[in-house]
Amino acid sequence: MKIELVYFGRPKEHLKIARETADLPAGTSNLAGVLAWLRTRGDVWAQELADNRVRCAINQEFADLPATIKENDEIAIFSPISGG
């Protein structure tokens, strides 16, 4: 399953990536699974994308870890927001 990944805030800077198209391994069906898969890319990924350090959105709506994903979804991964 192909998805678009976009990064903002701390993970964008530390992982040195803003956007990518990813092909998820079979059986990955929710946000928690996407993060778990990304964490296998290496130490810095594992550290930056710990469940309690990131927030997510699916197709530009905030979403929690159990949220289901589908083909071509835009998944955003970011640090906790801090505007204003």
């Binding site: 903002f8 805030g9 800077e13 955003a76 640090s79 906790p80 927001i81 801090s82 505007g83 204003g84």
Partner: peptide, 30 residues
Amino acid sequence: IIDYLKTAAPFWKKEETGEGSHWLETRETD
């Protein structure tokens, strides 16, 4: 609107100080 913006609008703020820089997190008071 300003209270809500603080916790529901996706913005990220990085502070740059003499010691380096760091991303701010959502404040508990917000």
